[in-house]
Computed example of a mutant assay.
Amino acid sequence: MIFLVNTDEPNPIDFFLQDEVKEGENVSASCSVSHSCPTYPPSFIWSHSGEKHDQTQQLQNDQWKATSTLTFHPNRTHHNQPLQCRVTYHGGKHQEQSKTLKVKYAPVNVKAEYQSDVNEGETAHLKCSSDANPVSSYEWHNETGALLNKGQTYTMSNVSRHSEAMYCTAVNEEGRNRSSTVKLNVLYPPDIETSSKCFSEDGVVKCECIVESRPPSIVHFVLRDRVLQSTNVETVGSVTTGTLQTDFGSFKFVHCLANNTLGKANLTLSLPANDNMQNIFIASGAGVIFLIILIATGVGVVKKCRGRSGETPTSDLGTMKAERPVELPRYAPTKRF
Rank of each mutant, 00 (worst) to 15 (best):
F3T: 06
F3D: 08
L4T: 11
V5H: 02
N6T: 06
P12I: 03
L17C: 13
E20S: 13
K22R: 14
E23P: 09
V27N: 03
H35D: 01
C37V: 12
C37A: 14
P38R: 13
P38S: 11
Y40V: 03
H48Y: 12
K52Y: 01
D54W: 02
L59W: 05
D62V: 02
F72T: 13
P74C: 03
N75K: 11
H79W: 13
L83V: 06
Q84C: 07
V87F: 07
T88I: 12
H90N: 14
P107Q: 01
N109M: 03
V110R: 05
A112D: 07
E113M: 01
E122L: 05
E122D: 08
L126E: 02
S129L: 02
A132S: 15
N133H: 10
P134L: 08
H141N: 06
T144D: 12
A146S: 11
N149P: 01
K150L: 13
K150N: 14
T155L: 04
T155Y: 03
N158E: 10
S160L: 12
S160D: 05
E164G: 07
A165E: 06
C168G: 04
C168Q: 04
T169M: 12
V171E: 03
E173G: 08
R176P: 00
V182I: 12
K183W: 01
L184R: 06
F199T: 08
V205W: 10
K206V: 03
I210Y: 08
V211P: 03
I218W: 13
L228E: 11
L228P: 05
T231A: 05
E234D: 14
V236P: 00
L244I: 02
L244F: 09
T246C: 07
F248P: 10
C256D: 02
N260R: 00
T261E: 15
A265H: 07
L267N: 06
S284G: 10
A286Q: 14
L291F: 04
G300A: 12
V301P: 01
R306M: 14
R306F: 14
D316V: 08
L317N: 08
R324K: 15
V326G: 07
E327I: 08
E327S: 11
L328I: 09
T334D: 10
